[in-house]
Each structure stands twice: as structure tokens, then as C-alpha cells.
């Protein structure tokens, strides 16, 4: 299972990539995608919407199930992956690349410390099985 080192993680299986311009790219992990199976629909917030750390910001729906998306960080949505909304199955193919969900401006950099490192997330996954 791929868990990129440079990303930070939540217990709800979202990842955040903290960029130097004070924004974060947000997506879901390979573990989440494998649990869900074939993704068929996504609901994402609009650009300009606020998301809050730990609160839901959308849903991802697979053939078999629907899962809430939880924001890893608080901030304003500056971008969302319109290509992914058109072709949700892309999420199954590359959850860390073309399957990114939204970009937000980070309101509070301290929140980043509350996220797990790749090693911590790996250890967390091992507790789930």
C-alpha cells in the first residue's frame, strides 16, 4: 500500500500536501479507495466555501457504499478537481496524483501538527486489521 512520505494524514484516511504558498492539496488515501471500491460519484465544496478541520466537506460514493470526506485542515477552498468530478473513477487509479480533491488556503498552520506523518499513518493502519 502506497503511503507517500511527504504527505500528512488523518484517521479518516484523508491526506494533505502542505505547499510552500500556504495552501494544502487534499485527497483520500489508497487505503480509503481500496475500501470503497469503484468510485462513481463525488460531492465537493465550491471554490470560496470554507472547510473546517474534522468537519465533513463532501462525499465520495462507490458502487457499494458512501463515505463522508473530513477536512484535514481549516481554510477556504481555492480550487477543486473539476476533471475528477467528470471522471470519478480516476480516484481509483491515482488517489495521490490525478485523484486529488480540493486545494485550500491554510487558516491556521498549527493544525498541521495534529495530522499524522506517513510513518504514524502506516502504524495506524496496522491497528485496523
Amino acid at each position: 500500500m502506497e503511503i507517500p512520505k511527504q504527505l500528512r494524514y488523518t484517521k479518516e484516511h484523508e491526506w494533505a500536501r502542505i505547499d510552500e504558498d500556504g495552501t494544502a492539496l487534499i485527497g483520500v488515501t489508497e487505503y480509503a479507495v481500496e475500501e470503497l471500491g469503484d468510485v462513481v460519484f463525488l460531492e465537493l465544496p465550491e471554490v470560496g466555501d470554507e472547510v473546517s478541520q474534522g468537519a465533513t466537506f463532501g462525499t465520495v460514493e462507490s458502487v457499494k457504499a458512501v463515505a463522508e470526506l473530513y477536512a484535514p485542515l481549516t481554510g477556504e477552498v481555492t480550487e477543486r478537481n473539476e476533471d475528477l468530478l467528470e471522471a470519478p473513477e480516476t480516484l481509483n487509479e491515482g488517489p495521490y496524483e490525478e485523484g486529488w480533491l480540493i486545494r485550500i488556503s491554510i487558516d491556521n498552520a498549527d493544525e498541521v501538527d495534529e495530522l499524522m506523518s506517513a510513518d504514524e499513518y502506516q502504524a495506524y493502519l496496522e491497528t485496523l486489521d
Partner: peptide, 11 residues
Amino acid sequence: PVQYTGVKAEH
């Protein structure tokens, strides 16, 4: 087995 490659492809 709930799925092998994916529900969509199998369906």
C-alpha cells in the same frame, strides 16, 4: 469474495 478487480468490471 466481494470483488476481484472491481464491481463495475465484473458487473
